[in-house]
Nucleic acid binder design. Structure first.
Lengths: 195, 195, 195, 195
DNA sequence: AATGAATGAGGTTTCATTCAT
DNA sequence: CATGAATGAAACCTCATTCAT
């Protein structure tokens, strides 16, 4: 089983790493545990990732691209701006529900910004992109008169905080759709709907 | 006097522990670092806390009492229910701003619930108390006709998630009062004010 | 057995290190072996020497001072210059015989100069001092007409090479005095005695 | 043809091994480094040498045959015994200058005789052959009355030590012929020329 | 024959804990 | 009480060796 590093094996290791890093933190998650979880031998981890540090970095940054694609896009096929915002929120929420483990990794890094400054900066840069991407939605809603006047930037900031808080405080259960619906509805309040 | 002196030293160690545990996590924060930060010798830490585990536990649980007192109380001297809710939010926010370091400890434990199950349970029990404590405020507002009808439990849950999210995603700067005001105003949206 | 690092223990570790480094080389000599040889626990080695590198450095440099004192001094209480040179050679030889183990460390470093450049430079600087220290002896002998005319620097260089070669190629046996006498007599030939 | 090709590759690996073993010692010289230096792949080294041990052994023993041929022969075409001895010394010296890297391997093994006992014995046996081969030259010189009376065995021993010492302490520069001439002239002193 | 991915033994180093002073 | 030297378990990482391709 030589000749060529397998992308499949690399992925298994990465997923095991995300799992254990997010559950136990950087130090408690040992390479040995990760290798066992990934179903490979101890040394094989080092065939794919030079050091534990590099593996952690990859566990934070590699899934970030997909996260960006999901979170920076908004629902387009809605006529009503309110529906569009709600649908966008729903997409975000669903991503967090499905990628619960990765979301915890992100929060772990955000929570220890002094320890992982480069990674934190990378994640932080993304939150600013996210704020920018939400701004036009908010403005459109305000222009349409269905949202009260609030600074769009502040709406974005608090909405983002809310999503993170939900992820942090909620016990994972992707199948509890009603709960997710509730979180979507309440998130919408942060956009300042007139009622 | 001897006891007084000792209690002072115990507090220094505890504060240093909270500081370093929250910045670096459990494993990266070494007893040696904590002792240095506390200005005591290495062995002295063990005079006050039997093991590292016990010290961590203390760092999580000892400040919890004060947190409970602040967060479970609501402003009483307001006639208007809206003012009362807003003032309560403000009190919560201020506590989080001032006890930023401890708040991060709490989030660290919540983020790694598999690793610290007993501590997590303790913190989680508190969140349910908090939900219960908020409920009457929400109901009062809804009865007064100034809040739209929402399940008071859900309001509490999402409000709590919001507070945690703010704490997690916001760079510490206790003196930036305007920012805190903004967070208070937006938090109020989650209560469903009619507008 | 705390309170204060013991100089005695430090010496035991250092001697064990010199022993094993010189017999097995840097990599094969493990800290575990060294600690066993020194009669201390594994971790104790690190109480006295931060890293294996530092221990190796100490094993090379700490005994160097004594070596300098012996090798840079020459016999003073001889009237005859020939006797003085011979006595000096004898002193050198005896030092090498007694400090056989350390001498092998020195040769190990000299033999791997690319690997230990700083240590090599330190040792090399010493050989130049040694050349300088021998020069007056040679000149005195030549002026007295008992030595043939040779460049004193070359005499020193070749003499030093000879001593190292003897150390390298000879099986240790400090008690075989006759052998050492022979090596002294032949070393004297390198000074170019008239006969 | 296939065999020819293979032998060439085998030689490249062996030369790379001698180079790296002599610069870095056994443990620090990794198979990977050697393979890179030899311009072959990692696994190919094992095609030609079963284990690292065997490769090291080969690096010590294979060039020994050539060394024997050069060092055990003496210049024959000289009428004068003094010229014959000097020419022999010169031949030895030139071999050491040219095969500097291999000479360091030999010294590495000699310096760690406890670690490589079989190899050491092999090299040591050779030094005894060398002593035997020098004996008649010395005797001839003594009989001719141009060398003082010294035990020929001791002359051989010290001469050999000298050569090794020169090799050990001298920075390589094969082109500095004057230096080599100097070393040859001084080596001759060890044979006890009358002057 | 040549390659390099897979493996795990063994190395250095860190660090919580013990305990003599 | 306070201290820090002593200890060894357990972490990360390297690297010789095996073997499928």
């Amino acid at each position: 089983m030589a000749i060529q590093k397998s992308e499949e094996k690399r992925q298994k290791i990465l997923q095991a790493a995300i799992q254990l890093f997010s559950e136990n933190g950087y130090s408690k998650a040992t390479i040995k545990d990760i290798s066992k979880e990934a179903g490979v031998s101890f040394g094989t981890v080092f065939t794919y990732y030079e050091t534990k540090d590099k593996l952690f970095e990859a566990a934070v940054l590699e899934p970030l691209e997909e996260m960006k694609q999901v979170l920076l896009s908004h629902a387009e096929d809605q006529e009503d701006i309110i529906d569009q915002i709600k649908e966008t929120i729903r997409m975000h929420m669903m991503y967090f529900a499905r990628q619960a483990t990765y979301a915890r990794m992100v929060q772990y890094v955000i929570g220890q910004r002094e320890r992982f400054p480069e990674l934190f900066d990378e994640l932080n840069a993304f939150t600013e992109d996210l704020q920018d991407s939400l701004k036009p939605l908010v403005e459109k809603g305000q222009e349409a008169g269905v949202l009260i006047k609030l600074d769009p930037k502040n709406v974005a900031i608090t909405y983002l905080a809310y999503i993170n808080g939900v992820r942090l405080t909620t016990i994972d259960d992707i199948d509890q759709v009603p709960a997710w619906n509730m979180f979507v509805d309440h998130a919408f309040l942060l956009f300042g709907p007139k009622q």
